[in-house]
Nucleic acid binder design. Structure first.
Lengths: 352, 352
DNA sequence: TTGAAAGCGTTACCAG
DNA sequence: CTGGTAACGCTTTCAA
């Protein structure tokens, strides 16, 4: 690959010349194809090894017509240069995607989320998994227009010209339903003023969940108490929590929709003088497994990154290998009620 | 890319035919090369757009002779199929590598850590960053033999045939020194029985750090108290901690060398009936930023994933773009003393 | 200004 | 059983 080398790589033809045979024979000998006599095969292999020959991967790909490379992009915070390290959700998506891809013999390329438009089109990809596409996402549009199969969410696919849609597959959640499930639970547990921390992006998840919260509030005749963060970050998130809890007639429940270390959030709430669940019911959208080890364990809403990634890869690979599969897969979020949003009795007991 | 399509992709030559010009003209018109009259250029562009033409990435790469793709592999737990999601260190390495690569116009491919030997050689890579190579790592050997520049640690490079070593660069730490620094600190803070949780792999980091601990114990005439984990995982790690603390004459200091959520560890220690730093001094090797928000804040040892990744990419890119740069970069670990391993006064006060 | 043709390094088809 | 030769799809040099 390296062009800057003084010594150019040894090519198939070099081996052929050195071994006194043709390119075909070398190719066959090395790939176990054809029916060469063992002697020829071994001779060629020896020469190849002696010369340090390695096939050029790019040339093989051009020949093969596919690259067995899948792209992965997290688009939620397109503006801010890549911030997914602290986000357990994206970490787990990356891991699970890589594992699933590997199991099918595919590699995974982490795609740029920002930067010169179209730069992603220079990467030789067989398919792409786009997580949290933004509204009218150009990446989804471009790949689909280029005929590269894409897995995204239903909205992203609906936004794309119908004639390019054929290569699109989707994985999706009913985000609104998930949010309402948590709100209903908190209300049933006695919460009257539920505060929410959400993201201020055009990703489907945040748009739908914020909308669901507002609708829910309207139905219940309640005043929304919501902080929308334009970017992730521990500082800002804790700050938002602090401000929400400092409001006059402070909330008696908190529901976070952005990732934040659960033990840390718990600790912060305590330092603000509130007990959980005594003064404040708590439910977190998180993939951090630490949530069930805290005291009290924290109720969590999970969007199943492992399952999602697995499904996305399967969808992509089915399409790539010519199998007619499902057009997509709808998941249900996983809400686990734990002691942090406990039943009303306990709260009444404490206060009475 | 997708071969399974009924409708084969439209190629350069198709556009040329449709526009009534030659391939050259199309290429020039689309790439802004040559000095075509504006009319021709626009005409070609219009036809290309109408046909939905997208250049084939693989073919361009073959022509270009490079792929602008960098491989990234975490080799520490080669046996276990990819377990880096919960590990803040690897997450941050991935993010930082991607960012740094992007800044140079390179993409990043996540490499398989296990699976059919050599399968990584089929991926068209310009360079590779191998984190925590194992002893005699075949991945490092193969890429170097193939003339693909590699960044790893010094040991990995030393193990490779000298004639292929030219394409190797390194980033490294003096792990032993880092470990001794922490042990010395804990001792100065009054610890007499320091327990350690480490990994049982052949990665440089674990080998050197475990050795340093044993040497330090020997020098001090102390009995080592160490748990070595063959694989990561919250359960196992907490279990190891529990066992170490349950020993007769229990340790008065704990130093973890494997990643574990700091707030969670603190919580666990407390549930075992020990206070930090009162009963137990605590220092963690971790990249989790939550460590400085706990109460008490936790002393941490960091191996600077951000800086390491940045340096690795720079080393790779310098080599690829023909610049003569450094052969490698030696880092010093970042040890931050916080209240969890506080000065002896406080411990005396509590106990007296 | 435009086009024909020569690569890039591999694999695969067919003659010999 | 082997070796020429034609793709794969693009860029670029060089003539016209």
């Amino acid at each position: 690959m390296s062009q800057s080398d003084r010594t150019p790589r040894v090519r198939l033809v070099d081996v052929a010349r050195a071994a006194g045979v043709s390119k075909t024979t070398v190719s066959d000998a090395l790939n176990g194809a054809g029916r060469l006599p063992a002697a020829t095969r071994e001779h060629v292999q020896k020469v190849a090894r002696a010369l340090g020959y390695r096939p050029n991967a790019t040339a093989r790909l051009l020949r093969a017509g596919h690259t067995r490379l899948l792209g992965l992009a997290a688009r939620e915070y397109v503006e801010t240069p890549w911030v997914y390290a602290d986000l357990a959700y994206f970490s787990q998506i990356v891991t699970a995607t890589t594992q699933a891809a590997l199991a099918h013999g595919y590699g995974v390329v982490l795609l740029p989320t920002y930067g010169p438009d179209d730069c992603w089109l220079d990467i030789p990809l067989d398919g792409v998994f786009v997580i949290d596409p933004v509204e009218g996402d150009p990446m989804v549009r471009d790949f689909l227009a280029a005929g590269v199969p894409v897995v995204a969410d239903r909205r992203a696919l609906a936004e794309v010209p119908v004639e390019t849609r054929e290569a699109g597959r989707w994985v999706d959640f009913d985000y609104g339903a998930a949010v309402r499930q948590v709100l209903d639970h908190l209300e049933a547990a006695g919460a009257e003023r539920i505060a929410v921390v959400a993201g201020a992006t055009t990703a489907c998840f945040h748009q739908q969940s914020v909308r669901a919260y507002h609708e829910w509030c309207a139905e219940q005749g309640r005043e929304p108490r919501i902080a929308c963060l334009p970017a992730p970050g521990v500082e800002h998130t804790l700050q938002a929590v602090t401000e929400l809890l400092a409001a006059p007639a402070p909330p008696d429940a908190l529901f976070t929709l952005v990732e934040l270390s659960p033990p840390l959030l718990l600790d912060t709430i305590r330092r603000l003088g509130r007990s959980v669940p005594g003064d404040l019911l708590l439910a977190c959208t998180t993939e951090d497994s630490a949530a069930c080890y805290t005291d009290p364990p924290i109720s969590t809403l999970s969007f199943l990154p492992g399952e999602t990634a697995q499904a996305a890869v399967d969808l992509l690979v089915d399409r790539l290998e010519g199998r007619e599969g499902d057009p997509g897969h709808l998941f249900s979020a996983d809400f686990r009620v734990r002691a942090s949003s406990a039943v009303p009795e306990r709260r009444g007991a404490r206060r009475g």
